[in-house]
Design a protein around this nucleic acid. Structure first.
Lengths: 123, 123
DNA sequence: CAGGATCCACTACGATACTG
DNA sequence: CAGTATCGTAGTGGATCCTG
């Protein structure tokens, strides 16, 4: 007889809800874009590019924005002008995630130094 | 003059604390291992293997455990026996992260259906 | 301006075989 | 039992060039 407490049935690598969120925001740019849009509500493509710090490639910004849009975290609005204008606006769904990220940030600020100290000790 | 609200100075791709956490747990197995240890406090290598569901390779379990140990999320204890026994115990640092993950899980359970609906609509 | 299309490098991960 | 070593693959992200 095993005394190992497993997680709830639905918590496994296939359909763990937390893992799905982490998978979604574990990429390089999605979290940053969401946070920036959370502070600005609406931004254009190049404004986002600058806000991030310009060290993101155009391709990755495009890909990141498309997937965030597909998931409903932001809304993309195209204005039929010349030159073209495209605005990205955070949705309520996107906004609802921001407080959780803030909590993670508080935790990270408190504990990151301990983690890095542990890493050096481990070497 | 720009009206773009940037994030705080330290919040960029290089040293954003949240991104560091996400980088750390954005891999495939770390989160799951931490959650399982959170429920069991202490487990042996093969017990962890079973608790995860055995669909993790030995190599990846080893790698995952080593990095979690290096960061101070768990403690590794080797007993000089034959056959060898190695126990992995969650640390206070590890435990402190669990409630935040629980919050993420609650959010995910509420919102994941909306996300998936949005994805299908987007196709 | 806001992208699309290509090509390429790197890494994460898995499968398999072997060991103190 | 609890790993290590090696190899092969798929996916992620960057650089560059092109366009309505």
């Amino acid at each position: 007889m095993s005394k190992i407490k497993i997680l709830e049935n639905e918590i496994n690598i296939e359909n763990c809800p937390v893992r799905k969120v982490l998978d979604r925001f574990g990429d390089k740019w999605s979290l940053l874009v969401l946070l920036i849009l959370g502070k600005n509500e609406t931004l254009r493509f190049n404004e986002l590019n600058k806000a991030i710090g310009s060290d993101i490639s155009q391709k990755m910004l495009t890909v990141t924005l498309r997937t965030l849009e597909a998931d409903g975290f932001l809304k993309r609005t195209i204005y039929a002008e010349v030159p073209p204008r495209v605005e990205y606006t955070i949705t309520d769904l996107g906004k609802s995630l921001v407080p959780l990220i803030d909590n993670l940030e508080k935790w990270a600020k408190v504990n990151m130094s301990a983690i890095e100290k542990s890493r050096k000790k481990f070497e």
